[in-house]
Amino acid sequence: MSEKLPKASAIKALSVEYTGLVQEPLEGFQVKLAREENMFEWDIVIFGPPETLYQGGYFKAKMRFPQDYPFSPPTLKFTTKLWHPNIYDNGDVCISILHPPVDDPPSGELPCERWNPTQTVRTILLSVVSLLNEPNTFSPANVDASVMYRRWKESQGANKEYEEIIKRQVAMSREQAAKDGVDVPQTLEDYTRASRIQRERGQSQAESSDFYEDLIGDDDDDTDMETSVTNATSDNS
């Protein structure tokens, strides 16, 4: 079997997911390719959900996919500074769903809690938003943030050290949003409106893109696809 076949299969799977997210975007998220015709690296924007500490936030991240996706998980790294128990100082997200499904008793994670090929970018992003609001403090990536979060939680908000850091980071992220020319949703109505606007724009973009239509072909077209995606995959060989 050609070594390019798994890569072509991954591109096909990713193109289906990408087109789906463009046509029917998740509320509070934006996705786009980091580089044209490279399906293996996506730029992600997560808007802070209303009525949370992160309300009004504009958090940018990179998602990178392996050549054998969806059999192996992608990685997700925030490029916006974010103080959180499950995010390393370098921005890498530590969450069970992004860990390979191996037996690792010391981690405290069951294989069923880890990645499996039925997971998608949608489930990853929803899991990350859930993690922002409800951190896992049992095996933290940032111990100091974990301790601070527990103090805030146990004091029912009286200890505001954690809250104040998050609010400062939200304010800084909004400055970046202004530089990027992005209107950050503040209310629940704005939160859903942004997604509807993106959906309208995304449908137009997807309909005009021959690249994605070519990739979502019949399974019998894998051989021809190897030639058509050589340029798109050369950076990931």
Score class of each variant (00 low, 15 high):
R151N: 04
Q119Y: 13
R201A: 12
K167Q: 15
Q119L: 09
L98K: 13
R151E: 02
S195L: 08
L188F: 03
Q176C: 03
D144R: 08
D190N: 10
D104C: 02
T223D: 15
G202R: 09
S139Y: 14
D220Y: 01
V182G: 00
V143N: 00
I165H: 09
V129P: 03
S146F: 08
P135L: 05
E200M: 10
A232M: 06
Q119K: 15
V143C: 08
D220H: 01
Q198Y: 07
P100Q: 01
R114E: 11
I95P: 14
A158V: 08
D210L: 14
R196E: 13
P106D: 00
D144H: 07
R199H: 06
L132E: 03
D221F: 11
S127G: 04
E164Q: 14
E113N: 09
Q119S: 11
D180Y: 00
M225C: 01
L188V: 07
V129T: 15
Q156V: 08
T223Q: 14
D103M: 07
E175L: 11
V128A: 08
I166E: 01
N142R: 03
G217E: 06
Q203W: 10
V147F: 09
T223H: 06
E161Q: 12
D235R: 11
D210H: 06
L215F: 00
L110K: 13
R114T: 08
A171V: 01
P111S: 10
